[in-house]
Computed example of a mutant assay.
Amino acid sequence: MGEFDSIRPYQDDEVAAVLTRLTSDRTLLGMLTRFRFPHLAGPLGWLLRPLIAWRLRRECAGIDCVAKLQDKVEPYVDRTIEKATDGVTYSGLEQLPAGKPCLFIANHRDIVMDPAFVNYALYHSKHPTVRIAIGDNLLQKPFVGDLMRLNKSFIVPRSITGRREKLAAFQLLSAYINHSIRNDRESVWIAQAEGRAKDGNDRTDPAILKMFHMSRKDQPFAEVISQLHIIPVSISYEYDPCDQAKARELSIRASSGSYTKAQGEDDASIALGITGYKGRVHLHFGNEMSAPCEDAKQLATALDQVILTHYRLFPVHYLAYAMWDQQDAQIQVPQISELFPADDLRRAEGEWQRRLEHCPAEYRDCLILQYANPVRSHYRVKAGLPL
């Protein structure tokens, strides 16, 4: 057994066997049957599952490596993105270091779509796609783990509780990320913090950056970081399909001090995040972090400055900020009418009003918070103020 077998993505020589296993997985076939035939899956599921399995086997025929699988899946990803957005734009890819594998560190709003949009931009710009860090808490069903690891995902330990076990797991993760970039020459995507920024307050967790260094403690932090070729990525959604659910969680957590997820809540968030309306989406790929940072805290500050500077604010963000009762007296936020054409504003006002009306009154402050926080963060960075 290889050192990284418990967490790494599947390799080309494993793809065919995993696809064969998936096309026979009763849980996956049942889920696909319910998705494809929602009204017939109950009484006729026993008859429809073999049909779905046959279709899957036909679609997977001849796929014997990860690249062929991604080529096969890409049209489906494109159609999903086209149906759920008003367009995806990206900038900065022309500045990626040529021929260098990179460590892409991005703000985190959606479980699946954040790395999917990064890969979408890279794929359509003829850059290699990335290996994706995904928490083991999202892989509770075996077929989900198989699907993610087929798509170049590797596993981040989040469910381990023992201190010694957790330390060993993060040592392994650190070694794997370094090995991917330095030895396999494969780029990696990871979120700037564990879990989504449900309140819209994007901040890099220094603990994530310290983890990169854990497996190479004998070398200076700055030297290790320089060899990972870190690229900050700003991912900006006009609308968050999960904003209502996030507002509910934030409100309950604020009032009670805790929040317990219901069974299947992560699965529902994943599905809604993929299919729900997002409006416009923009990604900015920053320059490689070349200035030496002596520790994780200094690097986190530098990453935040780039990510927040290039976060694209849409009209809805300014509309929310104008309603917010926590406006920042230290920053100058332009009038929304100076920034966007009238037609754009009218559309945004209608959609924002619809979202407010659909949000229960007790959660509404937390909905506003999600869209207002990026405005404060962006303009504080632009003004050179601490976050």
Rank of each mutant, 00 (worst) to 15 (best):
S24I: 01
A271D: 12
I368E: 01
D146E: 11
K68M: 04
H108M: 09
M1A: 10
D114W: 03
P75M: 06
V306P: 03
K210Y: 02
I225M: 12
A271W: 05
I270S: 04
F117I: 14
V130N: 07
H108L: 10
S6C: 02
Y318K: 15
R49F: 00
Q326I: 01
G195S: 12
A342R: 15
S187Q: 06
G42Y: 10
D146C: 01
Q370E: 13
Y371S: 09
E362L: 04
S226T: 09
V88K: 08
I368P: 10
G384P: 11
N183Q: 14
L385I: 09
S258K: 15
D325V: 06
P386H: 06
L122G: 13
P232I: 03
R79P: 08
P97A: 03
L22S: 04
N119F: 14
G384L: 03
D202W: 05
Y371Q: 07
I252M: 05
E223P: 12
F314H: 15
E74M: 15
A106M: 08
S337I: 14
S234A: 14
V381R: 11
L47W: 13
F212D: 08
K141E: 14
D64A: 14
G195F: 06
L93I: 10
S125Y: 04
F4W: 00
E186M: 13
A121E: 13
R253E: 02
E351S: 08
W324E: 12
W46L: 05
V130L: 13
S180Y: 03
A106V: 03
G264T: 06
T33R: 01
I181S: 02
I7Y: 00
A41P: 07
V306W: 00
A247N: 09
A84Y: 07
E338W: 06
M211G: 04
L69R: 13
A361N: 02
L19I: 01
R380S: 07
I336A: 06
Y120P: 11
C359D: 01
S234P: 12
L172D: 09
G276Y: 05
G257F: 04
A222W: 00
K278D: 10
K68C: 01
D304F: 00
E194P: 11
F4N: 04
S187D: 05
A262H: 11
S251F: 00
A106G: 13
P386Y: 05
R163I: 09
